[in-house]
């Protein structure tokens, strides 16, 4: 089992069930909106809500596998790495998440690699 690190940097932002399967919800933060994604297999990912192409809201895209397709011009982003899928190139900052007892924890100070 994975060790769960609890410190004051991990913030409880809501329950897994509050995000639809293959869906996304948005969290407002001081440094801008964060998109929180839930995949078919119940994994949770978070990225800045800003497409590397032209800042489109990734939270409004279609989630498939561990990817999201941006609604504005169709770039597809890998949720785990934040990288755009070739041939497009670019990267959105990702934010570490973990799920404890059905609650989503977000690492707030580490706003991406």
């Amino acid at each position: 089992m994975q060790d769960i690190v609890m410190d004051r940097d991990w913030l409880d932002v809501g329950g897994v069930e509050e995000i639809p399967l293959r869906g996304t919800r948005v969290i407002a933060t001081k440094s801008g909106p964060v998109a929180v994604f839930r995949t078919t297999d119940n994994r949770i990912f978070a990225t800045r809500d800003r497409c590397p192409h032209k800042n489109g809201p990734l939270s409004q895209g279609i989630v498939h596998g561990t990817r999201v397709t941006c609604p504005l011009h169709g770039w597809t982003i890998d949720l785990a790495t934040g990288e755009a899928i070739a041939p497009d190139r670019g990267c959105v900052p990702t934010i570490p998440t973990q799920v404890v007892d059905g609650r989503i924890l977000l690492h707030v100070t580490q706003s991406g690699r």
């Binding site: 639809p20 399967l21 293959r22 869906g23 995949t39 078919t40 895209g61 279609i62 989630v63 498939h64 596998g65 397709t69 169709g74 597809t76």
Partner: peptide, 30 residues
């Protein structure tokens, strides 16, 4: 691919709406 992709999911959602108007549960995420 288990979930399909952003091009087939909307297409399938429509095909199902069209085939089973009374029965199909619309899938918002598609």
């Amino acid at each position: 691919q288990a979930d399909g992709c952003s091009s087939c999911r909307p297409a399938l959602n429509f095909y199902l709406i069209c085939a089973w108007p009374g029965e199909y549960q619309d899938d918002a995420q598609s």
